[in-house]
Simulated scan of single mutants.
Amino acid sequence: MSHHQETIESLNQLLQGEYMAVESFNNFISRLRDEKVRQTFMDIQKQHRKNIDRLAGYIQEIGGRPEENLGLKGTMGEIKVNLDLGPDADTSEIIKKAIEGETRGVNMAEKVLRGDLDEKSRDVAGEILHEDRKSIQKLERLQ
């Protein structure tokens, strides 16, 4: 596989993580009753959507094709979140699950950044990572 293809594959992994985050936040938001917490979750979800737009656009710019579906891994992750939370999850459980998910996303982004990326791709991935870290801080302030 060429270096260019590896870069596109790495960025698509990051893109998949952002799609998984949006889906998870759909689930979380539908369960939340506290309006302040709900609004914070909606803001974080909006940031993930911006990350998706940025990543997908950049992948196309460099001649790649963004993978814009969740795939089996995403579907299984969504099922796991539903099972872990159960039907009666309270706000603190939902916040805890969201922090766990965001932390997994940050870890994945860090792994992508440690890969063999060109400077521009590294900058794009680094900006996504920065935004995801800010999301964790917002969630932690809700605890």
Rank of each mutant, 00 (worst) to 15 (best):
V124K: 04
L85R: 07
L113Q: 09
K73W: 09
Y19L: 15
N69P: 01
P87I: 12
E35F: 12
T91S: 12
I95H: 10
L117C: 08
I8Q: 04
M108V: 08
K96P: 01
G63I: 10
F28K: 02
E9H: 12
E110D: 15
R33E: 15
Q16L: 11
R133Y: 08
I99P: 06
F28D: 03
E68D: 10
K134F: 04
E110Y: 03
N27M: 15
R49V: 00
A125D: 00
E67C: 01
K120V: 06
E93P: 00
K46D: 13
I94A: 05
D116Y: 05
D88W: 13
M42P: 00
H4N: 05
E119H: 13
Q47K: 07
D34P: 09
F41H: 04
E102F: 06
E119K: 14
D132M: 08
K73G: 11
G63T: 13
N12R: 08
L129K: 09
K50N: 15
E131W: 07
S30D: 15
Q60A: 14
S10R: 12
M1V: 15
L139E: 03
G74T: 05
Q60L: 09
T40F: 02
D118N: 15
F28M: 08
E119A: 15
P87Y: 11
M42I: 09
R133L: 12
A89D: 10
M76E: 07
R122S: 14
Q5M: 12
K138A: 14
K96H: 13
D123G: 10
N26C: 05
G105P: 03
G77V: 02
A89F: 11
T40R: 07
A89S: 12
R114L: 09
I62T: 05
H4T: 04
F28E: 01
S24H: 13
H4F: 05
